[in-house]
Design a protein around this nucleic acid. Structure first.
Lengths: 335, 335
DNA sequence: TACTTTTATGTAAGCGTTTCCCTTTACTTA
DNA sequence: TAAGTAAAGGGAAACGCTTACATAAAAGTA
């Protein structure tokens, strides 16, 4: 570590033979600096290889030009892609992104939220259901409500929040309609996450089945945990339950992949004997054999919209509180 | 937005009837504060719900207690998991993590690097080959060499850097030996990324084939791009080339999955006609049918070690410059 | 010409912390 | 008892920037 004296705005001012105010002005592209002076200053900056300290700037401005992204699990391809899209978009409009992976624990969330605020972020975007419990969530967020934030892939029953969500209702509707068209009647739904969208999809399933006049019984919906193993386990349970079915909709591709695996092991042919639909259009869905029909929920658009929404909130403009994006059914070999 | 006056250390000092110096002392657990005073101050802090500004603190301390993680592509499960592990570990030892997804362009990298420095990070960890070109990389990093940094999943030919890498040589060795044991002689390698580890793996392949006395010709190594489609394309190329082979090692699972797909379409049975090995033990590898034999490169350990290494560098202690972790072969159905 | 306005620049006061350097008080110790 | 030491806490400078205010020069304007 070479002890390198950090050069500051005074050094630049001295070299350029002007005041720090002037340097600051050229730094921030303020008007009323003569071309000649501007040139001198820029030269000095280049010569000294000077970079303004974001921290000092943050102190006086009361904010750093950054926004925090709080993600429950960056390991989920879906969230990872959304986060990437946000990052790109933010970068585009001059913001830096601080990505935090909370793992979903309430304690972690609170700590990270606090840290982001202390760090002077201009806004916060939460990806996914940040807290497990919605009440908790509402309370928690109200504590930080003085900093603009938007919820992505999630929505909570509080009227002071902004969210952009995927239209789960529509996504599931596409699945059910597609299956019905293919002649299926006995359709099962596997819920694999206790999150906002998990609940939404389940509700959407019931509603759409009813709407299309398809049978829905107490053996229409099964629960498991999101993973390959979870998929295997739930299929075993389904088989053991004696439920009638010719198609299964899973809440996520990886769970669907596990289910597919178990189904094939049990002697079922997919899609001949049973059709399968996954969710999220993750890389895994394309690796399955047969390749999974799945729902793409437009992670890029989600990310972009979230950022746009946050921007308007930051700028204090009026805007709608809820943005909904329409997912798309990707039909492949499993149906 | 409620205009909430941010309360500061002066407010606390006033309420607790002490000086700001004392408040600062209890904040930082410094000695020589009487229990009585400490209690008073803590009470005031609680009463006002005061949180010290990380920015102001950063300004005087010359650093915020954060480290930057520069990742080429957070969308790659491998890197995502490493980043998560780092984040957890950093959080553990009291650091905040700023995760940046650069997309790999030189321009982006430079900008992000600069931003991190300006933000006062204590250190930087780069995941993956940050720059495409190694020379560039060396130059670039030397420009930022006054802030401690470590390279993860990458290593460059400069003697002032610290890296933790996966022992690619060993990983590929495991693959080749495993294949040889299974009776394979004509083994192909598909390189799918122009990165540090891509090059390493290719070199390791050649070396191990030679060491084990297996044939290596100008049709032993093929190139493609990392993706499902890339896998399909390269298999078509292999088939068209007339190369002899009974096994293929891919540089990544997703490419292997594409290759598997193409192979099956072409009428090959896996593993009977041809064995396949992927790399990275990603979720996709388990979704394939047959499930892919693959190499797990210990993302958690990589993450943890990177952080530990960075910590010792930050603390200025002597340490080894290169840490190498040993990957593990996960044998599944495709071999 | 004498005035008002505009433009270009400098001065210095913050922003919210930490910490160096004092002072005061209390306690030892010979 | 007097001098010395340690503990507790305060005052104020410093960190590197932005910007309100002040000032001076240049340019209009009647």
């Amino acid at each position: 570590m070479i002890a390198k004296k950090k050069i500051n705005i005074y050094d630049v001012a001295r070299i350029a033979n002007v005041s720090t105010a002037t340097v600051s002005r050229v730094l921030n592209n303020k008007s009323s600096v003569s071309p000649e002076t501007r040139r001198k200053v820029q030269e000095a900056i280049k010569q000294l290889n000077y970079r303004p300290s974001a921290i000092a700037r943050g102190l006086v401005l009361k904010h750093t030009k950054t926004v925090g992204i709080l993600a429950t699990d960056i390991t989920a391809p879906n969230y990872a892609r959304t986060a990437c899209a946000m990052e790109r978009e933010l970068f585009q409009i001059g913001y830096n992104a601080i990505l935090c992976n909370t793992g979903g624990s309430i304690e972690n969330n609170k700590t990270y939220l606090q840290m982001l605020v202390n760090l002077g972020v201009c806004g916060i975007i939460c990806i996914g259901s940040v807290f497990k419990n919605t009440l908790q969530e509402t309370l928690m967020l109200s504590e930080f409500s003085h900093v603009p934030f938007v919820l992505s892939h999630c929505q909570i029953p509080a009227d002071n929040t902004y969210s952009v969500v995927i239209d789960e209702m529509h996504g599931v509707q596409l699945c059910v309609e597609h299956l019905k068209e293919k002649g299926h009647k006995d359709i099962l739904y596997v819920k694999d996450a206790d999150t906002y969208s998990g609940e939404r999809k389940k509700a959407a399933f019931k509603e759409n089945m009813a709407r299309l006049g398809l049978p829905i019984t107490d053996k229409s919906i099964f629960n498991t945990y999101r993973s390959f193993e979870g998929g295997i386990a739930v299929v075993k349970e389904i088989l053991a339950s004696g439920a009638r079915f010719s198609a299964i909709i899973f809440g996520d591709d990886i769970t669907a992949a596990g289910g597919l695996f178990a189904l094939k092991k049990a002697g079922y042919k997919v899609p001949q004997d049973v059709a399968i639909i996954g969710y999220n259009n993750s890389p895994s869905s394309i690796c399955c054999d047969p390749q999974l029909t799945t729902v793409d929920n437009k992670t890029d658009i989600m990310g972009n919209l979230s950022v746009k929404l946050l921007q308007t909130v930051i700028e204090g403009k009026e805007t709608t509180r809820l943005l909904s994006v329409t997912p798309e059914l990707i039909v492949r070999e499993s149906t």
